[in-house]
Amino acid sequence: MPGDFVAGYTEETEKVVDAIRKSGIEPVNIAIFSEPFAGKTTFLNHIYAIFRGRGARISISHSDDISYLKQHLKDIRESIIFIDDCHLLYDRKVDGFEELKGLLDFIGESTEKIFITSWNIFSWNYLNKTHHIEKHFPCRIELPEFGVEQIRSVLLAPYISGDILFESGEKNGIEHVLEFKSYTLNLKRMDKNINIPYPNFHYNLLKEKLSFKKKATPDEVAFTKIKENSSGNILLSKIIWEKSLQGSTIRVTDIYSPSYEVKLEYDTLFIGFLILSMGNISKKRLESTIGDEIDITRSLSLLLEHKIIRIKDGICSIRPEAMHHIESLARNRRLL
C-alpha cells in the first residue's frame, strides 16, 4: 500500500527531494500539510526513507506533555530533522503557543539543519493567520486530492486483475428523457390521497445522448463516484470501497456516500472543529484548551452520538466519513 500510495505524490516527492538537494548552502525548511487522513505521515516517512542516513525523525505525541521536544531537538546530530504532526504543538488557548514558538525559534537559530515538518491543514491555516508560520518554511507543499486513476491503483493494488466485478446496477428498460411521475398528496382531514402528475426531466440522459463521447464503463463510473464521495481523500476512499464491496462485486448504484444531515449548535461544532484541526487529541488536553466555557462532556456525547468522532483510550479523533461535513459546517459558521 505505501508504495502505491506515494506513487500518487510523485510530483510532491520530486519537489521535496529537489529542495533538500539544493539546500547545500542555505537550508530550505519544508512544510507539508494536508487534511487529516490524506497521508502526510506516510509521505513524510517516504521522504525519510530516501534520506535515512542523514535524517532523524520525531513524531509529536497527542498526549498531554509536549515539553520534551526542545531538549530532544538539541540532542539531534543529523542534518535533516523530520517532525511529524507539528500542529500538536499548540493549544488554542491563552499561553497555549509556547512549544510552537519554541520550535520556530529553534528552527530560526539552527541555520545548518533542514527541517521537514508535517501539519494538519486547518491548524496550518489558523497558525498562519495568528503566527505567520509560513515565513519559517520557504518550501510549502500541500498534498493534493487523489485523482480517479490514483484512487483506482491504490484500491485495486491488493487484487489480481478480474478479482472484482463492476456492475452498473441500473434498472432494465428504456429510460426516456422526459417522464411523467406522480406526487401523492395526502389530505389528512378528508382522509384522501390525490395523485398529482408532474414531468421529470432526465438532464444527464439527455447530456449522454447528445454527447459524442464513449459511454463510461461501470468501473470508470465507480471510481469517479468514489473520488467524488471522498473528495480525493485516500483513507475515505478506502472506507467507501470497503463499505460498497458486496462479496467481490461493486455495484455503481450502491456505492456508499457519507451523508450527515445533523446540525450542531455552535459550541459543539467548535469542539468538533478543534478535533478536526488536531486530527487526534486527548480528552484531557481538550478540556484544558476549552476550560469551563463549554460543557465538554455533553458536546463530546453529542458528537459521539452523531458518529462524528470516536474516543478510544481517552483520545478523541474525527471520523473520516464526518470530516467534510464538519469542515462545511465550520466554513458556514465562519470558524475557519
Binding site: K93, V94, D95, T130, D267, F270
Partner: peptide, 16 residues
C-alpha cells in the same frame, strides 16, 4: 500579548 491571544483563540473570532 495575553489580550491578543485571548482574542485570536476565541471561538467567535473572524481572522483573515
Amino acid at each position: 500579548r495575553i489580550a491578543e491571544e485571548a482574542a485570536f483563540t476565541s471561538k467567535y473570532i473572524l481572522l483573515d
